[in-house]
């Protein structure tokens, strides 16, 4: 299944998404936790910790730096950009903004 979690800031989107991902992974499902927020924080709620979450390379950064190619399939996206979190959840960060006036 494919689930999008939406709502106001601070209402608990990331906590619910990350916890759902862990629960589903524990029940034996393959789970990709896709963080599409420009302020990506899903790593914290799936258990990677704040410091590691802060430095996860986003797909956008990888593409901009020319180090990686576009990945049109989910499998490719996970293989290229996935970070393994507890219970086998694969975290993929799409975009992260750290600089002023990004292209």
């Amino acid at each position: 299944m494919k689930i999008a979690v939406a709502g106001k800031g601070g209402s608990g989107k990331t906590t619910i998404a990350g916890t759902l991902a862990r629960l589903m992974a524990q029940s034996g499902r393959h789970v990709v936790a896709l963080d599409a927020d420009t302020n990506p924080m899903l790593g914290v709620s799936v258990g990677l910790g704040a410091e590691e979450t802060d430095i996860l390379l986003s797909a956008r950064e990888g593409l901009d730096s020319g180090e990686t190619e576009h990945q049109p399939t989910l499998e490719g996206l996970v293989a290229e950009f996935g970070t393994e979190a507890p219970d086998g959840v694969q975290v993929v960060v799409v975009n992260r903004i750290d600089n002023i006036d990004p292209g």
């Binding site: 990331t14 420009t38 302020n39 924080m41 600089n99």
Partner: peptide, 27 residues
């Protein structure tokens, strides 16, 4: 708006001071 996107795109070019508001939560 929440998060870094709008500050990055300079939605407050008039600001000489940023009040950075945070709780003690890790996110």
């Amino acid at each position: 708006p929440a998060g870094p996107r709008h500050a990055a795109f300079n939605w407050a070019p008039y600001a000489d001071t940023y009040l950075v508001v945070t709780t003690a939560g890790s996110m």
